[in-house]
């Protein structure tokens, strides 16, 4: 088997969603046997089967990326609760896996994705979207380039644009 095929098959295997008990599934989403897939690529040893060795990486993958979303969106987790947040995270990351070298960008598409999949936020959709906007803005502000402060003379060119207050009001109400 060529290197590229090994990497494609292993990558697909380790990114398969885990079972509810956080184990590797018996069958992949496309119905193939995960045991046979593991055996085709990975050698067993005297303590672990091929599938058990693959499972170490399968679990590491999901623990790492879902953990990263927990770190980045604690407010969203507080709104949805742990179970719903975890289900949302898994569904989001299946649809929008990382396309960046840094985990910092993992939540970049979360707002747009949730708008397309509102069932994952239930009755808290509006509040959840507001919280995602705030928490993502916080991530961006943390390491964004510093721009020079505007000089007083430049203020006459500033155009004030009206924005909806609805993005803020539910948050303030929620915190109270």
């Amino acid at each position: 088997m060529k290197l590229r095929e090994i990497q494609q098959r292993m990558f697909r295997a380790i990114t398969e969603p885990l079972t509810a008990s956080e184990r590797t599934r018996a069958r992949g989403l496309d119905g193939r046997s995960m045991r046979k897939e593991a055996e085709a690529i990975i050698k067993p040893n005297d303590r672990l089967s091929s599938l058990e060795r693959l499972e170490i990486y399968n679990r590491q993958y999901w623990f790492r990326i879902i953990g990263s979303l927990y770190d980045d969106f604690p407010g969203l987790e507080a709104i949805l609760g742990e179970n719903r947040f975890e289900k949302l995270s898994q569904a989001y990351l299946q649809d929008c896996p990382s396309r960046s070298h840094t985990l910092r960008d993992l939540g970049a598409r979360l707002e747009g994705w949730l708008e397309q999949h509102p069932e994952h936020a239930g009755r808290h959709l509006s509040l959840a979207l507001d919280m995602i906007r705030i928490e993502w803005a916080n991530i961006e502000a943390f390491d964004a380039a510093e721009l020079p402060s505007p000089r007083m003379s430049s203020w006459r060119f500033v155009r004030i644009r009206q924005i909806s207050a609805s993005a803020c009001s539910p948050i303030s109400g929620w915190w109270q």
Binding site: K2, L3, I6, Q7, Q8, M10, F11, I14, T15, Y57, Q60, Y61, R64, I65, S68, P97, S98, R99, S100, H101, L103
Partner: peptide, 25 residues
């Protein structure tokens, strides 16, 4: 190590098969 396929990242440090093809790559 490796960790990405077609621009999608695992954010893990995955082991490489110890082949001459992989070494050249």
């Amino acid at each position: 190590c490796w960790g990405s396929v077609d621009g999608t990242y695992s954010h893990d440090l995955l082991p490489i098969p110890y082949t001459f093809e992989a070494a050249r790559n």
